[in-house]
Write a protein that binds this DNA or RNA. Sequence first.
DNA 1: TTCCGTGCAAATCTTTTGCACGGTC
DNA 2: GACCGTGCAAAAGATTTGCACGGAA
Lengths: 157, 157
Amino acid sequence: MNMSSQAADSAAGQWADRAEATLAAAGHKRGGARRALLELLDRQECALTALEIEDALAARGAPRRVSRASVYRILDELERARLVQRVETGQAMVHYERVCEQEHHHHHLVCDECGLVMPFTDAGLERAIDRLSSTVPLTVSEHEIVLHGACRDCRDG
Amino acid sequence: MNMSSQAADSAAGQWADRAEATLAAAGHKRGGARRALLELLDRQECALTALEIEDALAARGAPRRVSRASVYRILDELERARLVQRVETGQAMVHYERVCEQEHHHHHLVCDECGLVMPFTDAGLERAIDRLSSTVPLTVSEHEIVLHGACRDCRDG
DNA sequence: TTCCGTGCAAATCTTTTGCACGGTC
DNA sequence: GACCGTGCAAAAGATTTGCACGGAA
């Protein structure tokens, strides 16, 4: 049986497990801070900033507190391993989210007024990107698409 | 006649003139630092960082030196007026470039190894974005697309 | 036991701000 | 003459780094 990577990733903690295994295979030791961060990211639907991650892990009920330095170090490590990707929103702080294969692949809508970040997907867009990627003078490894504007609350309110 | 795309857009400072006029109409006084910055941006084919702008204006032969604080203030002012847009490359510093109507609308290729930033255009991509923009829960005012990867020099070398 | 992951505090780096002067209107 | 644009220096804010300790292998 061949569980799709999405199913694999969406089942409780599977992405976190895969990520930890990948890092272990690359010679990293396991650690409590990283494990807590991985599990937090695994539960997110969209991108968080380093500060949001720190706060979430400091909140009551969180498995453990993780220092800000570790949050940045772990995110950097995960980014290099392509387990996490950064999302640039034009705001002061960079956002980070886990990378899943295919199914969870999405892009972002950013409200420039309130800072809200939402995910969206579009097959036509992905096709256009794929087509294009083979024509540019760059071996494309990733793409990032951000639509800026005003969210409903900001537009109406 | 073979006008380069750059000449086409900025036939001798047209964008700079338009930008200055727009700001003047909005009640801003003219100033030497801003004029120098506008003319520099008008000559660029792609995005520059604040530091690159400062350096370019400090170089021999530049019309005048502009302090870093002014570079940031002027860029911020131009961004609010939608005369300039920021380009997020995943690098430490944000890049900025002038906004032209239609013809020069482009997106960016970023080499994650050497930091090279190149422009590209793709009509199919723009169509996909336009179609999509009417379906998302955001009144879209801008979009930014960045392809990350390795440029030819970095891949081959 | 060895070495790496982590916390804390200090450092670094980009971007912003306070203040005073000079130019534009 | 009134005010805004600009330079300089200091401040602010995000991210990184140095160092020492405790846990993983």
